[in-house]
């Protein structure tokens, strides 16, 4: 029963990925991407990582896809037309390259023989693993993995606060940095448009300072007249 479900999900997922990559309309591509993300969440469920599936739906579909949509809208692709298509001569090599990559990966996966090393745990070939361990009536529910599957949320929390605490803290730092930097870069420049200064101005704290010489971006001028840019 589980095998046909997997096949169905995989086929939908690959078609959605192809749709994302090939559809000329960017909004369609983003919708295909949402479908792809959802099939990935389904795969996580098949792999008994339901917690991860929930995160996948919340973060990828709930946040990433929406940010991408905003990006599409804000760059004036309101109709979603990807007018900048690729010359046909470049498509064939790109397709061949990715086919080659897939071929190499698939060959490597099917011919995997297990590491040459000493550990017997990794000695089995991937192609001979047809059954996941720890399933069935005689399976031991006390193995660490079985316990983890049963209490995934708790295990993830425990691991984050012990083994991967540095990674967890650094991930927090990374998100802070990304937000701070993205706000700085995406905000329109010019002193008056500075978000903090706008607030200061509203409460009468911002004294208007003349822009320093040599670096005076004129908002009316187009992108070509960006100050300080040497003409090419």
């Amino acid at each position: 029963m589980i095998v046909p479900i997997f096949v169905l999900i995989s086929v939908i997922g690959l078609l959605a990925a192809l749709g994302t990559v090939l559809s000329r309309n960017l909004v369609h591509a983003a919708l295909y991407l949402v479908a792809f993300f959802f099939t990935i969440a389904c795969q996580f469920v098949l792999l008994e990582a339901e917690f991860l599936a929930a995160i996948q739906v919340l973060v990828y579909i709930g946040a990433v896809a929406i940010i991408l949509m905003f990006g599409i809208m804000l760059t004036r692709n309101i109709l979603g037309d990807d007018t900048t298509s690729v010359p046909a001569g470049w498509k064939l090599p790109a397709g061949l390259a990715s086919l080659t990559l897939f071929g190499v990966l698939a060959y490597g996966i099917s011919n995997h023989t297990g590491a040459h090393g000493s550990a017997a745990t990794v000695g089995t070939a991937w192609s001979s693993v047809s059954q996941r361990p720890g399933i069935g009536p005689d399976a031991d529910p006390k193995t660490p993995r079985a316990v983890a599957i049963a209490n995934m949320g708790k295990t993830v929390g425990d691991e984050m606060m012990t083994r991967y605490v540095v990674g967890f803290e650094v991930a927090g730092l990374l998100l802070t940095a990304a937000i701070v930097g993205a706000v700085v870069l995406a905000y329109r420049d010019g002193a008056d448009d500075d978000p903090a200064r706008r607030v200061l101005k509203a409460v009468g704290l911002f004294p208007p300072t003349p822009p320093p010489p040599g670096r005076a971006p004129t908002p009316a001028a187009g992108p070509a007249a960006t100050a300080g840019e040497p003409r090419v």
Binding site: V104, L105, Y107, G108, I109, N111, H112, T113, A115, H116, W126
Partner: peptide, 8 residues
């Protein structure tokens, strides 16, 4: 040697 997956 013989490990295409590892080489990849």
């Amino acid at each position: 040697a013989g490990q295409v997956a590892g080489a990849t």
